[in-house]
Design a protein around this nucleic acid. Structure first.
Ligand SMILES: [Zn+2]
Ligand SMILES: [Zn+2]
Ligand SMILES: [Zn+2]
Ligand SMILES: [Zn+2]
Lengths: 129, 129
DNA sequence: TTACATAGTGTTATATTATAACAATTTTAA
DNA sequence: TTAAAATTGTTATAATATAACACTATGTAA
């Protein structure tokens, strides 16, 4: 559990308090008043935060959310649900699922040290409309 | 099983015969001799081909591969293994896995009509080096 | 404490990926 | 046959991400 650098902390705080995934340039816009002026400064912090598992990238949306799963300190096994109407994203923490996927072997018996799963559908709210 | 339009067919053929996932601008470069000159022409064909399940997008790589799974004619349930060394991508067709994921319910009992799963690790070849 | 490695910062420029907007043509099906 | 839906062509531009270089801060081990 290492300390974050200045830029990493600024960017993590922003993502962590956001109710929705944030895109890199939205982050850039938001942190310019704090002195972070260039895309690279944002992307470097994002890369590091992803690497240490403080945030995750939602690949299908090119957006970033804070990890909500204390046991997920390394970002090697992630699962999300994504509402196709309101774009609400929720990290899924399900022991059964993560066990199943971590132990999954392909046809040739290969196991994988990392996975990312994205479910798509309607969230509860959007379903009841 | 609808027929493909001219541009869709050209682009599908290219992806289908490629041993590796292709990126949109690599596709564009390759089909320029066939008269497809602009990014949008490529992206429109890709969108359609993804929609009808003839190809899939590898989200973490922004690249496209042909579907190798005859039962996967709609692209609503996809799984891939990706080698982090040589970038080889293989579509996984595993009844047990797809059943498990299609029936998965989250904490609130929600089911999802669609998912995409990407495994990362070393392919057989890269592992034995 | 010095020196070395590692990680982080700041900056400019540029590469890569993807869509907006508009006009025309072709295909499909009632 | 005619109207809707799908596809095409084109120019311009938006959005996402990295290269390259110079410098600074931090940790660590002699
Ligand atoms: Zn997490
Ligand atoms: Zn919703
Ligand atoms: Zn498929
Ligand atoms: Zn490999």
């Amino acid at each position: 559990m290492q300390n974050l650098s200045k830029n990493q902390q600024i960017i993590f705080d922003l993502i962590d308090k956001s109710p929705e995934p944030l895109k890199a340039y939205a982050i850039l816009f938001n942190v310019q008043k704090k002195g972070i002026k260039a895309p690279l400064q944002v992307y470097r912090a994002l890369d590091k935060l992803v690497k240490i598992g403080k945030i995750h990238k939602i690949e299908s949306r090119n957006a970033f959310i804070a990890c909500n799963n204390s046991s997920c300190q390394v970002s090697n096994a992630t699962a999300f649900s994504i509402c196709e109407v309101c774009e609400k994203v929720t990290e899924i923490s399900n022991t059964n699922l993560s066990k199943y996927l971590s132990n999954f072997k392909d046809k040739e018996g290969m196991k994988f040290n990392k996975y990312n799963l994205e479910f798509f559908g309607l969230c509860k709210k959007c379903k009841n409309k």
